[in-house]
Computed example of a mutant assay.
Amino acid sequence: MYTLSTTAHATKAAQYDDLLQQARSLIGDEIDFTANAANFASLVYHSLPDLNWAGFYLFDGDELVVGPFQGKPACVRIALGRGVCGTAARERKTQVVPDVDAFPGHIACDSASRSEIVVPLVASDGTLIGVWDVDSPVPGRFDDEDAAGMEALCAAFIALAWEERDES
């Protein structure tokens, strides 16, 4: 039902726009955060090529704790500032890592991962919610277009699954 357009003529930006519309449709009417996070992770994981993990690490006030995801079992807890996820959370800046072995302090939850992108999830009031983490077995899998696409997806997710949840 939810698949990313794979036409040869579709740009990466158009593919992310298509995925964004699917995500909005999928989670727009549900107020349960966990259900939305689980479906969001599944949608992205099964729609984008060359991924081996896609999911959330949620901030519990002290550290990041694994949340809904798709892929192999993951590291459970990550300190702020540690690895790609902890760095994205501490700096509140998207991290695009073409070669995880070159990232100082990278945490290898799955040795098959070769590249990674992590988007910090921050509520409109500045509260750190967590991070959105996507890994690939392909070196250099993610670029600036992926960062823009993932950031748009995460902004929609926060608006629909977090901000509306707070108002309920």
Rank of each mutant, 00 (worst) to 15 (best):
V84T: 06
L4V: 13
C75E: 15
A89D: 01
I31N: 14
A10C: 05
A13K: 13
A13H: 10
K93H: 13
H106T: 08
S25P: 12
I107Y: 03
L43T: 05
A112S: 15
R92Y: 04
V97S: 13
S111H: 08
Y45D: 12
A161I: 00
F56Y: 05
D125C: 03
A108T: 10
D144S: 15
A74M: 07
M1Q: 14
A148I: 14
A74P: 12
E145G: 14
G28K: 11
E63Q: 15
H106R: 06
R77P: 11
S42E: 13
G81T: 04
L160Y: 07
F157W: 04
V65K: 10
F103V: 03
P137H: 03
S124Y: 07
I31P: 15
L51P: 11
G140D: 14
E164W: 00
A88H: 13
Y57P: 06
T11R: 03
L160A: 07
Q21R: 12
S25G: 14
A108M: 11
D101T: 09
S5P: 14
L160G: 08
M1T: 12
A112D: 14
D110R: 00
D62T: 12
I31F: 13
A156D: 07
Q21P: 11
P49A: 04
D133R: 00
T7V: 12
P68F: 00
F142K: 07
S136F: 02
E30R: 06
A89M: 01
T11I: 01
A37L: 00
N39L: 14
E167A: 15
A54V: 00
T127N: 07
F69L: 00
F56S: 06
A79H: 10
A161W: 03
I78Y: 01
D29L: 10
C85A: 06
D29V: 08
L20H: 09
P68D: 01
W132Y: 08
P73M: 04
F56V: 01
Y57H: 02
Q70N: 13
T3L: 15
Q15W: 09
V119K: 01
F103C: 05
F157I: 05
C109Q: 06
D60P: 12
P104F: 03
T7D: 15
M1N: 13
A147N: 11
S115P: 08
T87C: 12
A156P: 11
A14Y: 05
F59P: 05
P98F: 01
Q22I: 06
R24M: 13
A8V: 05
A10G: 09
D60F: 03
K93T: 07
